Computed example of a mutant assay.
Amino acid sequence: MSRELPVINATAPQTFRRRRDRLPKPDWLKIRLGDPTMQNRVLRLIQGLNLHTVCQEARCPNIFECWSDGTATFMICGDTCTRHCGFCAVNKGKPGELDPEEPRHVAEAVRHLGLAHAVITSVNRDDLPDGGAAHWAETIRWVRRLNPDCKIEVLIPDFNGDEAALNTVLDAQPDVLNHNMETIARLYRRVRPDANYQQSLTLLRRAAERRDREGRGMLTKSGIMVGLGETFDEVVELMKDLRAVSCDIMTIGQYLQPHERRLPVERYVTPEEFARWREIGLQLGFRHVESGPLVRSSYHARRQAENSREGISTAVHEVIG
């Protein structure tokens, strides 16, 4: 059943580009289709457990490659977001009730897929007093209960700056705490009209401070999209802001307009620029920087975390330096 396209928040200035006016995609934006047999297995599993994946909802370009490898990023708290980001394809509107069976179903899906590293994200649930934090914690606990050897990476919303909600998630002890900045500060009103740049930095700082205070091995992580009108140096400034709050891992990928009612691509960033950002990021002290045209937050997430723990990126940093 098709969905009616949501109306973007009128308070945020938007510009849209008709299909015939879009910039032509460069040759380096090629997508691997992968093995349809494994893709169908993942799809049947997701549908059978009444789950959602950000791979489908956000129209991720890597869905074929990841599903062929038997991996998926689970999206909890339903499939309808209360915010109006200018880049996102996820359905907007009034969400339904939380599914109390969802945490267990996510854990069962992780077990069926035999995942060694599970990535979980969610829509924003500003309609809930805790932003869905308790549901998040229950999901982490269920995944840990059924998959004790699996590493758990969570890509969380900002919970409107509620430190108690963040602590509820941290109490469940995820292995990687990810919160995406999405874009540079100057573009927030256009790209993330319901979010706040400093609030997102504060969330990452609080997570890192609590980790350090308690002596945990948890990694912190954030990511952005480029091609929305930012400059090269503005991305570098954002990287410095992330390092100032002790962020360990950063992802940088090309924004791709999911449909005509979303922000247009202002430019396609070259592979050489992505490589340069990676070099700069490692020099700034990130444990790992995943930077490339098709990079997304959960793309090669297991490798990112393993490299960060094993010091592989540090070794590259020493060579570059």
Score class of each variant (00 low, 15 high):
G48I: 01
G48F: 00
L51S: 08
H52P: 14
T53V: 15
C55A: 11
C55D: 15
E57R: 05
A58C: 14
R59N: 14
R59S: 12
N62R: 13
N62L: 06
F64E: 15
E65G: 07
E65C: 04
E65P: 10
E65W: 07
W67F: 11
W67L: 09
W67Q: 13
S68H: 08
S68C: 06
S68A: 06
D69L: 12
T71Y: 01
A72H: 00
T73W: 05
F74P: 04
F74I: 07
F74W: 13
F74L: 12
M75R: 05
I76C: 08
C77Y: 02
G78V: 03
G78H: 04
D79R: 10
T80K: 06
T80A: 02
T80Q: 03
T80D: 04
C81S: 06
C81W: 09
C81I: 02
R83A: 05
R83H: 03
H84N: 14
H84D: 11
H84I: 03
H84G: 08
F87E: 08
A89W: 09
N91D: 07
K92M: 11
G93P: 05
G93N: 01
K94A: 03
P95R: 02
G96V: 06
G96R: 07
G96W: 07
E97N: 06
L98E: 06
E101W: 04
E101L: 09
P103F: 10
P103R: 02
R104N: 08
H105G: 02
V106L: 14
E108A: 11
E108K: 14
E108V: 15
E108C: 04
E108S: 07
V110G: 01
V110S: 01
V110K: 00
H112I: 11
L113D: 00
L113V: 00
L113T: 00
G114A: 11
G114L: 01
L115G: 13
A116I: 11
A116R: 12
H117R: 12
A118R: 01
V119Q: 14
I120G: 01
T121M: 11
T121W: 11
S122Y: 13
V123Y: 11
R125L: 10
D127A: 12
G132P: 02
A134C: 05
A134P: 02
A134D: 11
W136D: 05
W136G: 06
E138S: 14
T139L: 15
T139A: 15
